[in-house]
Structures are given as C-alpha cells and as structure tokens.
C-alpha cells in the first residue's frame, strides 16, 4: 500500500508542479503584464469600413496611477475635426471626474463619467475597451476552457454585466498577452466583436501588443490600433492632469 501511495506521489507531484495556473491567475497576469505606474502611448486608429474605406485618427494618451487611482489625459492630434481636443479623466475615491476641452468652443466642459460602452472616436473600441479588454480576478468569474502548447483559452463572465455578457480570451503562455478576445452580448451567446493581435513586440523587457484589430461582427467594420510609441514608468509630471494643461495644452 505504501509503495502504491509513494508511486502515486511520484506521478502526481511533478504533474501538479507543472499544472496550468488557475484561470483567474492567468487573467490577473494578463492585467499585470500591462500594468504600469505611468504610461505614455502614441496611437494610430485606422477605421476600416466593410468596403475597405479607411479613416485615420491619431492620439497621445498619458496615464498615471497612484494608490490604485488612475488619471488619464488624452490629446487628439488628427483629423482636423477633432485636432487639439483634450480629454481628462481623474479617478477619485467615490467617482471618476471627466473634463473635455473643445477647441471650437475654446472652453473646458465637465461631463458625467461614462461607466462603460460608447464608441471611442467612432472606432470599434469602446471607452472601456481602451482601458482594458480583459477582466481581472475580482471583476469576473474565469474558467480555463482550453490549453494548447502555446496558449490558454479563458472564458470570463463579468460579475456585473454591462456591455458584455462574456469574453473568451486566448492568452499567449510566454508573454501573457491576449492574442485574441471574443466579446459576447449580455445574453452570453451572441458574438459582438473580436479583437485580434496582429503584431507583438517588447519595450525594454515588457511584452506589448503593437498592432491589434477590433472587428464588429454585425457591421464588418474594423478598427486597427497601432502603437507607434510607448513608454512605461517614465516620469509624467502631475501638471499634465490639470485644468491648466486641459485648457492650454502646455505644462
């Protein structure tokens, strides 16, 4: 009996040691991989209609997280119709404050914060997609539904259903980058959008997704998001997240 038990241990322990991390742990690692105290990104969004017509938007976004509270300033660089529009979001203890500077009005307007949803600049990304395309362990119930030699496939059902009822993310094992994410309607069965990573790279030692495409299934409309420049954990002066910068575009 002892021999049998010992044999079982010999077989099981190595298997347990190399077992896949839990689905929740995988999704936490996906978030952690992309987490930074500060981030500066220079992005190009190409809006591609089903017939192939393309339009381009350029933005730079700076973010800073202190005590789990994130402030983000987004500057719209092109096209002409939105150039120099600036958008500031400051997460507080109870709520997130948002202001927008509209160059046509030359005024700053405080607006109510959007919880989720809403197209970002007419793209296939919503405002919440721009913040994150996956859920962490606390936000959703995760289940590992498939594992290949190079990827994990995790199903995430958000605890509070807003825009999406379910996400299925394909995560690269080496980097914990999401290679593909499927977004389902609140009914959990209708596929709304798919996010596909077209190109990955590294900044320093940090893996990043350089080019991703989000496709809306119902319309065939696609948005390609390219990271032209990105810097993590660089000093970003707090003056960027102020009414002064919002109003003047300068520190």
């Amino acid at each position: 009996m002892k021999r049998v038990f010992f044999m079982l241990l010999l077989i099981l322990v190595p298997a347990l040691l190399i077992a896949a991390p839990s689905a929740a742990r995988i999704m936490d690692l996906v978030i952690d991989t992309q987490k930074a105290d500060t981030a500066a990104m220079d992005l190009r969004l190409t809006l591609i209609e089903a017939n192939g017509t393309e339009r381009e938007r350029r933005i730079q976004t700076l973010s800073r997280t202190i005590d789990d509270k994130t402030s983000i300033i987004t500057v719209f660089l092109s096209p002409e119709s939105v150039k120099n529009t600036r958008f500031l979001s400051v997460e507080g203890e109870d709520a997130t404050d948002q202001w927008i500077y509209l160059p046509a009005l030359k005024r700053v307007r405080k607006i109510s914060a959007s919880e989720e949803g809403g197209s970002f600049m007419g793209s296939d990304f919503s405002y919440s997609d721009m913040a994150s395309t996956t859920y962490d362990a606390d936000e959703a119930t995760h289940r590992l539904i498939e594992e290949t030699p190079t990827t994990y496939v995790v199903e995430s059902i958000p605890k509070t259903v807003k825009s999406y009822g379910k996400n299925i993310a394909t995560v690269e094992k080496d980097t914990y980058l999401p290679l593909k994410v499927e977004f389902y309607a609140p009914d959990g069965t209708t596929l709304l959008k798919t996010l596909t990573t077209l190109e990955t790279g590294t900044v320093g030692t940090r893996p990043i997704t350089k080019v991703v495409e989000m496709k809306t299934i119902a319309t065939g409309h696609t948005t390609r998001l390219e990271m032209l420049q990105v810097r993590y954990d660089v000093p970003i002066p707090s003056a960027y997240f102020t009414a002064r910068f919002l109003e003047t575009g300068r520190l």
Binding site: D42, R44, L62, G201, L228, Q229, R231
Partner: peptide
C-alpha cells in the same frame, strides 16, 4: 510640430512603430 509628449523625452527608446511617430 504639434503636441508630442515623446518629443520631451531625450532618447528614441519606446519607438515601436515603423515610422516616426512625431506628428
């Protein structure tokens, strides 16, 4: 040039695109 945070940085590190991102 227009607003460019990256122009305030000293080095070219972080340029991941295939073209200069400076507007």
């Amino acid at each position: 040039f227009a607003f460019d945070f990256f122009a305030t940085l000293d080095d070219e590190e972080g340029l991941v695109g295939t073209e200069s991102a400076k507007p």
